[in-house]
Design a binder for these strands. Sequence first.
DNA 1: AAAACCATGTAATTGGTTACATGATTGG
DNA 2: CCAATCATGTAACCAATTACATGGTTTT
Lengths: 189, 189
Amino acid sequence: MPTRTFSRTDAAILGMLTVEPMSGYDMKHFCDQSLAHFWHENYGNLYPRLKRLRAAGLVRGRRERRAHGPDAIVYSLTTAGRRRFREWLRQEPHPEKVRSEFLLKIFFGAQAGLERSAGWIRDYQRQQQTTKRGYADVERMLRASLRDRPEALYWLMSLRRGQLVTEARLRWCRECLALMNDMTPEATP
Amino acid sequence: MPTRTFSRTDAAILGMLTVEPMSGYDMKHFCDQSLAHFWHENYGNLYPRLKRLRAAGLVRGRRERRAHGPDAIVYSLTTAGRRRFREWLRQEPHPEKVRSEFLLKIFFGAQAGLERSAGWIRDYQRQQQTTKRGYADVERMLRASLRDRPEALYWLMSLRRGQLVTEARLRWCRECLALMNDMTPEATP
DNA sequence: AAAACCATGTAATTGGTTACATGATTGG
DNA sequence: CCAATCATGTAACCAATTACATGGTTTT
C-alpha cells in the first residue's frame, strides 16, 4: 500500500531530509535560505504533511532537546522514505505553470500609464538587486562547503541559475526604464 | 456591494477583455499564445469565473454566430469591469511564489547521479530552444502591430523579458552541461 | 462517416494559503 | 519581565487542476 498522494511538498521534505535530519521549523528556514529562489513552503502546509509522511512510514520523528529554545520534533528518512525520494527523482519534472502578476501588470501597462508601470519596474529592480546581493553570500558559503560536501556542486548549479536569471531580469529593467524614459515628454528646461 | 473575492484569474480575464471582446475559448488561446511565458489558464477555471464576473456585473456576454464553428458567448467589459481592472492595476503586484520542480531535482541531483541530472538539463535546454524560436515569430508580429496598437509597446516589453530570461537559462544549461561533461570519467580511447 | 476543431460546462479533488491559537526558552 | 525567537499545530478557505460530459461545425 503506497502513499495515497505524493505532493511536491512531500518531495521537497524528503529531499531536505537527505541533507540532514530536521524539524518542520528547520525546513521552513532551509527553504527561505537555501531554496528561496525556486522553492517556498509555509508551516500550514509543512506540519500536516510531516504528520502524513510519518504515518506513511516515509519519515520518522523524535522529540529532541535543542541547544537553544524548546524541544523540537526532528525528522529523518526511513529506508522507504529514501526509496520513495529516489523514485520521485527519476520521474520527469512537470513543466512549470507560471503565473506572474507582475508581468501581467506590465503587459496591460498601457491602461495604467507610463509613470505607474515604470514604478513597478523600479520596485522590481530593487528587489532583484537585493536578491543578487544575497546570492553572493550564499555562493561563498557553498564554495567553502565543497570540500566535505560533494553535493554542494549541485547546490551551486541551482544557485548559478538564480544568478544568471536575476542578471537577465536586471538587464531587462534597465532596458525598459531607458526606453520609457525616452518616451516621456522631456520636462527638463 | 463589490465582488466577494477577486482572484488573479479575474484580473487576467478583465485584462484580456481590454484588448478585445472574447469568448472563454478565445481567452484560453490568448493565454497559450500571447501570455504563455508568464500566464496560463484552463477551462475548468475560466468558465466558472466568467459566470461569476458576469453575475457581478463586471462583464457582459452575448451569444454570437462565428465565421467557423458553433456559436460562442462573446464577453466584453462593462464600465464597472473597466473600473475594477484599473483598480487592480494600481495595486502593487504580490511577490511571486515560485515552485520549480525542475530546480528541486537539480538541487538534489547528487542523489540521482550525473547522467540523470544531465538528462533533465538537456530536456530543459530543448524546451527553452523551442520557446526561443517561438519568441522570434511573436516579436515580428508585435512589431508589425505597433503602428495601429500603441499598447503593443507594453506587449513587446513583456516579451523582451521572456527573451532575456530564456537566453539566460540557455546559457545556464550550456555551463552546467560543460561542467558535468568535465566531471564524467573520460570514456573515449 | 470519421477526424479535427470549436465551444461550454460541471464535479471532485487537491494543494496550498491565511489566520488563528498556543506555549516554551532565551537574551537583554 | 518583556520582547524575540523557537516550535507546533488546526480550521477555514480558496484557487486552481483534472477528469468527465456534451454537442455543434468543418474538413477530408
